[in-house]
């Protein structure tokens, strides 16, 4: 038996030779960037909001005015995005063919709270395509009709109000922390796996309130009361009647807004980064992209590289301070 197996090992040698000649035929050629499809790493599962928007904004990439090559979405989900971004910061080749989608404030908050391989110093932002602000929601039959009602109740009953959101250290969590700090109240934050159960628990009355994405809240507006939006301005397009927290007298800014955009790993050649920074915002401005995004109920907010860089820096400073208490507890 054993001998028979060993004898066959020599057969593998023959097979090997035949096969190598076949496989070796595909060579590598160098040409002007980009000369082959560009991968875009998405750190969330297919079908999620980030994935779905990344697919829309990258669908016109092959047009010669934009990148001249298609973008291929590669999903590397896990641990709230950490698996994909860790891989991106440590393994991705800085040659311009491997880019990733970022989610703010997740990327920065996670790099502050966890032992991640990424931080704002080894990632280069290229451009921002969208912004989904967090909104404070309660069920239709909830006794709270405004932020003031909720704050007054929380002052009387510290920690009794449960607030759901799509996980830890995501925009919804940041918004909850900001609200607690600005209003001087204590809430109980219930992290769920993604925004869908968080929304479901609010509608079903399993929690008393929740922070959720503006786009999802808008879709479910008939079953909800939307109390306030955690942004600097009202959203004229979808929810013109919902006040911002600042209008309600609570100092919550836009730090929890879920910004989505494209970034490159550190070490990508300057010429490539400049090319991308110039072309990608144009690609986001394409009419077809705007139409599809609007149809999907996803707000567009396009920012160029300089603007994104400034925003990243501001968030890093602010979040380090906001999260410092939680960090000490760990």
């Amino acid at each position: 038996m054993n001998k028979a197996i060993l004898r066959r090992l020599q057969g593998i040698g023959i097979a090997l030779l035949a096969g190598l000649t076949f496989f070796a035929s595909s060579g590598v050629r160098a040409a002007d960037y980009p000369d082959r499809p560009i991968s875009l790493i998405v750190a969330y599962s297919p079908g999620g909001a980030t994935d779905f928007q990344a697919r829309i904004v990258s669908m016109m990439a092959a047009k010669p005015d934009y990148l001249g090559q298609p973008m291929v979405i590669i999903n590397k989900p896990g641990a709230g995005g950490q698996v994909g971004w860790n891989w991106f910061a440590s393994e991705a080749k800085p040659n311009g063919y491997e880019l990733a989608a970022y989610n703010l404030p997740h990327v920065i908050a996670q790099s502050i709270m966890f032992d991640t391989k990424y931080n704002i110093h080894n990632l280069i932002p290229i451009a921002n395509w969208g912004a989904d602000p967090a909104v404070l929601i309660v069920a239709k039959d909830s006794p709270f009709n405004s932020v003031k009602d909720l704050v007054a109740y929380a002052k009387k009953h510290p920690g009794k109000i449960t607030v759901s959101g799509a996980g830890l250290y995501v925009g919804h969590h940041i918004a909850t922390l900001q609200l607690e700090k600005a209003a001087g109240i204590k809430l109980t934050y219930i992290p769920t796996k993604g925004g869908v159960p968080a929304m479901q628990y609010v509608i079903g009355g399993k929690v008393m309130a929740g922070f959720n994405n503006l786009s999802d809240a808008y879709r479910n507006r008939e079953r909800l009361k939307i109390l306030a939006i955690a942004d600097l301005q009202r959203n004229k397009e979808f929810l013109p009647d919902v006040p911002t927290f600042k209008e309600e007298g609570i100092n919550v800014d836009d730090s929890s807004v879920n910004f989505r955009g494209i970034m490159a790993p550190k070490g990508t050649p300057k010429a490539v980064v400049d090319f991308l920074a110039q072309r990608i915002p144009k690609m986001f401005h394409d009419k077809k992209v705007a139409a599809k995004m609007k149809a999907g109920g996803s707000p567009l907010r396009i920012m160029d590289q300089a603007q994104v860089e400034k925003m990243w820096q501001r968030r890093q400073v602010y979040l380090t301070e906001l999260l410092s208490k939680l960090r000490k507890k760990k």
């Binding site: 599962s45 297919p46 079908g47 994935d51 779905f52 869908v196």
Partner: peptide, 10 residues
Amino acid sequence: AVLLGGLLIH
């Protein structure tokens, strides 16, 4: 859940 993405796109 994935199908939801498909519905939204349209």
